[in-house]
């Protein structure tokens, strides 16, 4: 059994707690959608997540506004259809929904490049969930920590993370675009992960 130690002071703890509550709102909505087919809860999810999905679709990409709107529709319908499999104890709603948006965008890029494959991104990169109880607690704390620390990242590291995660660019694509060595991209990503206290070993 792992002992998770936190070095947060009280103020940070309460900030974290208030953010937790907000996260729980979406997890509750998604659970209502999954269990009861609740359209009002789905509408709330739509109003929060659809504008984020559209921003994500347009982020650094060559997608047209039409493609972006189609992607938003496709992802929100997937959220509705797959919500029955969502378990709030295993994943935050935002991570679960982000994963679907990311995979759908990858599939859309491949379709637009006439890349014909029997595999969908959901087949190979679905949400990675763990069954272990201590992991869930550990992950929840990690998530709260990331939220708190992310605004303190130096701008060069934040910029690289945005290109890697929101624009979906590979490290070498980012290096090419910013005209910096690949090693610099990798080390900025690693420094950022360290600052966010992402843990690599037990």
């Amino acid at each position: 059994m792992m002992i998770v130690t936190d070095n947060f002071d009280d103020e940070t703890e309460s900030q974290v707690a208030s953010k937790e509550k907000r996260t729980d709102e979406w997890s509750e909505c998604l659970t209502l959608v999954g269990q009861n087919g609740d359209r009002a809860a789905f509408t709330r999810l739509f109003r929060h997540f659809a504008p984020l999905m559209k921003a994500f679709a347009l982020s650094g990409s060559t997608l047209s506004a039409n493609n972006a709107d189609e992607l938003v529709q496709e992802v929100m319908i997937k959220v509705w259809q797959k919500a029955g499999a969502y378990n709030a104890e295993k994943a935050a709603a935002s991570t679960w929904i982000y994963t679907i948006a990311r995979n759908s965008r990858t599939d859309l890029f491949r379709r637009l490049q006439k890349f014909d494959t029997p595999l969908s991104a959901d087949d190979i990169a679905g949400s990675q969930e763990s069954e272990e109880a201590f992991m869930m607690l550990h992950q929840k704390r990690g998530r709260d920590r990331i939220r708190t620390l992310i605004s303190g990242l130096p701008s060069d590291q934040a910029q690289i993370l945005a290109k890697v995660y929101m624009e979906g660019k590979s490290h070498s694509e980012v290096a090419g675009e910013l005209d910096i060595p690949l090693g610099t991209v990798k080390s900025r990503v690693r420094l950022a992960l360290q600052k966010l206290q992402i843990r690599f070993e037990e």
Binding site: S94, Q139, I150
Partner: peptide, 15 residues
């Protein structure tokens, strides 16, 4: 464990 944390990071950036 690592991929789970990195997916959470993606979700935080997304939000």
């Amino acid at each position: 464990r690592i991929a789970g944390q990195l997916a959470d990071l993606g979700a935080c950036l997304f939000e």
